[in-house]
Every structure is written in C-alpha cells, then in structure tokens.
Nucleic acid binder design. Structure first.
Lengths: 108, 108
DNA sequence: TTCACTTGCTACAATATGTGTAGCAACGAT
DNA sequence: ATCGTTGCTACACATATTGTAGCAAGTGAA
C-alpha cells in the first residue's frame, strides 16, 4: 500500500491521520468521485460521465489512490466503496447538508 | 462577493452548493487552514506557522476566498470563523473522527 | 472468424496551480 | 528615530491538471 494514515502527507511531517486525509481529499476531484458513488457502483466510464468528463488520466490516478488507501474497490459491478469508504461517504453527506445551510444563508 | 453557493464551480456547471463546496475545499491547504483555526483566532503569521509554513502567496489567496464566501473573517484578534465557518469546522471535526477510525483499521 | 461494440485504461502536450524566498509598507512601542 | 511586529506582494521555478487521441482486451452476434 502506497499511503496509509500514519504515513507521509504532503505539507505535513507529522503523519496524523487527519493530515493524510486532508492531503488526499484536498486534491481536485477526489471528493467529487467519492460523492458520485453514493447511490451505486459505477464503471470507469459511467463514473467519468458523472464527474463532468474529468480526464481519464486523472480519474485513473485518483481511483488508484483511493483503492490504495482502502476507501474504494473495483469488482465486477464496477467501482464502489469499501466499508471504510462508506463511512467517509456518510461524512461527505453531512458536508452536503452543511452546503445547503450555507447556500441558504449566503443567498439572503 | 466572488463565489457564492449558487454560483460557479470549476468542473461543474450546475452550481449545486455541494459542488461549490467541493471545489473550494478540494484545493490545497483550504481544509488545513480551516482546521488550524479550531481553537483560537490566529494572526496571518501564526496561522502560516501552524500550516507548515505554507507560502504566504497561497495563504493570502485562500484567506481572501474564505472571507469572500463567508466562512472566515478578519478582526483585531486575527483570522477566525464566522458562524457558518464554525458550522463547517464541526463537520471537519467529524472528518477527524473518521480519520482516526480509518487509521486504526488500516494499521491492522 | 470477423465485425461491431464496450471496457479500462495510457500518452502527451498545453495550461493552471502551488512553492519558496525575498522584501516592503504600515503600525505601535521604546 | 529605531526596532520589532504585522499583513501582505513579486517573481521565478516546480508540480498538478486538462483535453484529445487512441489502444488492447473482452463480449456477443452474424
């Protein structure tokens, strides 16, 4: 495995899990990719279509990383969450709830 | 204000709040900056020091954006959360809890 | 067995984004 | 006046992301 919590993160020497997570999620498309898998497993091409046709180069790079760190897996049904990935997806859903409150507050 | 939920996000034409949020947070240092303000308001220089000496160019760019979108403000006491920003910080703290579970699961 | 079609990718050159060091103008205290 | 702080800007270099093209492997029908 390439990058576990407990190992290095860009811009942080401590390796605290939250820093590693910020490092991974703070890359373009990572959260979006996780988000788009919330309802069903998807093939590479379907996932790409849902992510506004992100370049396959990057999609593949992200999928590799997300598999490496145990959040996604790839089976016959396509790409989807591991148990840990689903846990993270729940947190992302909460971010979605926040985003709604934020939009409401900002539009006034 | 430059970027509200409901307005543009890179890579998404819909402008759904969650997409705008992913767009903002999915930039290097954004989550880290928000995270480091969790305990107290900080001066530009203190905040920079806590963020592993991120370049001031980028720190300033991020702070501007986070103020524009109503998550941070800057007063005599330094940079700190708005009410909305504090709401988001709570979600980030939950991500921190997830990161701990993740680290535990991955280290076995 | 050859064709049409889908899948999961890789190559590559152009562009956008982030980094690191230096330093400056404004302030308050001595 | 000078010192030390603050919040920043400039700029040249490095890394990350984009967009298009296309390929090899698999499936299923003719």
């Amino acid at each position: 495995m390439a990058k576990k919590p407990g190992l290095r993160a860009r811009g942080s020497t401590t390796g605290r899990p939250i820093m590693v997570l910020f490092d991974v999620l703070g890359q373009r498309w990572t959260m979006r990719i996780l988000w788009e898998l919330r309802d069903a497993r998807l093939s590479f091409r379907d996932l790409r279509a849902r992510c506004d046709d992100v370049s396959p180069t990057l999609l593949n790079r992200r999928l590799k990383e997300l598999r490496d760190i145990g959040l996604l897996d790839h089976s016959d049904g396509g790409y989807g969450y591991t148990a840990l990935g689903r846990d993270l997806a729940v947190q992302l859903a909460r971010m979605g709830d926040f985003a709604t409150r934020w939009a409401a507050a900002m539009s006034t």
